[in-house]
């Protein structure tokens, strides 16, 4: 079973994402910010990370840069999931090491499309 870490400071978003990802056959773990997410990743790297941008403690951009510098940190597919919808912001996230980008609001179809494109769906 593939694993996905959902990183978002909103419990509602984490719940919605969890439901979508479980329907897609993922085992889901949750983190409320970049620091918590990094703790998960140093223990075991997930196959995918759904990552919010604006979060307390450590934001998504800082997290992805740190993750990519870790041993094995190039492995997880990182999909940003943020209300930021300016082209420049999306480019910044991709340049920082994200594989894909979802603009909120999103639905199951969009998540499935992005993960499928990244080769994470059977």
């Amino acid at each position: 079973m593939k694993t996905c870490l959902v990183v978002d400071d909103s419990r509602v978003i984490r719940k919605v994402s969890r439901r979508i990802l479980e329907d897609l056959g993922f085992e889901v773990a949750e983190a409320a910010d970049g620091v918590e997410a990094m703790a998960w990743c140093t223990a075991v790297m997930p196959d995918a990370i759904l990552l919010d941008w604006r979060m307390p403690a450590m934001d998504g951009l800082e997290f992805v840069k740190k993750l990519r510098a870790e041993v094995g940190g190039d492995q997880p597919k990182v999909v940003f999931c943020s209300v930021e919808n300016e082209i420049e912001a999306i480019r910044e996230a991709l340049d920082a090491g994200a594989d894909e980008y979802i603009m909120k609001p999103f639905d199951g179809g969009i998540v499935a499309g992005k993960l499928g494109y990244l080769g994470l769906l059977a």
């Binding site: 082209i87 991709l94 980008y101 999103f106 969009i110 499309g113 494109y117």
Partner: peptide, 16 residues
């Protein structure tokens, strides 16, 4: 633009 369009294609070919 989130239906099937990879984010890299979006930033390469689209403007907001």
């Amino acid at each position: 633009v989130q239906r099937g369009l990879p984010a890299r294609m979006l930033v390469r070919h689209f403007e907001k």
